[in-house]
Amino acid sequence: MIATPPIRAVPSPPVIELVDLHKVYRVGVELVHALQGITLTIQENEYVAIMGPSGSGKSTLMNILGCLDVPTGGDYRLRGQDVSRLSQSKLALIRGRQIGFVFQSFELLPRTTALKNVELPMTYSGVRHRRRRALEALKRVNLLDRAHHHPNQLSGGQKQRVALARALAQQPDIILADEPTGNLDSATGEEIMAVFDSLHAEGQTLIIVTHEDHIARRCRRIIRLIDGRIVLDTARGDVWSPTTPTLTAAPAGAPVPSSTEGTP
């Protein structure tokens, strides 16, 4: 375990606290170490980009953060609550109430209006005034006029905005977006990022997985994964530049040296 010295006074528990998180997949007889000891703290209203080459474990990390999956080792505390060993149905409740997920491929229900899609998480968590809250969320992503359209009547960017409205309608503790602009052209991607920016300005905590530097640059903190390890975290004072072929600073398997830890 890595002892993290208290750096500044934290009024409330961090939104996310990962300690030495591991995830091992078993494929036949082979073991795939997708995450190899992730230690990470994310505070309220942080705006984080997670980068890294394909297969580096970004989606695996997001799935665990989103309580879609459980780690095989280590601890995950979401707003101070240990969620790494909860039952399936408890995890489902947390997904419904505390997490807003945005996917690369939108994942809207076909044959269902935008409004109903936005209401969906609330039907499972049993929130009241679903319709009103869904309409408010659609208003925030500027799609109020498309509330009664079906997904096949919407453009890619509009679909992703509906998905965003669905994620934020319940005011989750955190919004997780796994390559939200991956299926969109750059102009539409900018459009989506503008919404993320404004959510950040309103105090929302956001984590976005992305390949694109210009997207990452909009975020306040960049974390880079390679082979299931954090090799760069601008919150530690690491300097990130899109041109420097980022760090093989720590060789795979070795613990991250504590000297690199600190605050910017």
């Binding site: 989103g66 879609l68 399936q88 489902a92 409740l93 996917f103 994942e107 998480p121 499972y124 669905r166």
Partner: peptide, 16 residues
């Protein structure tokens, strides 16, 4: 299957 995955990811339990 994808619909089921989506429903679960937004909070549907097994019983739902």
């Amino acid at each position: 299957t994808r619909e089921i995955g989506l429903r679960k990811s937004v909070g549907a339990r097994r019983r739902d």
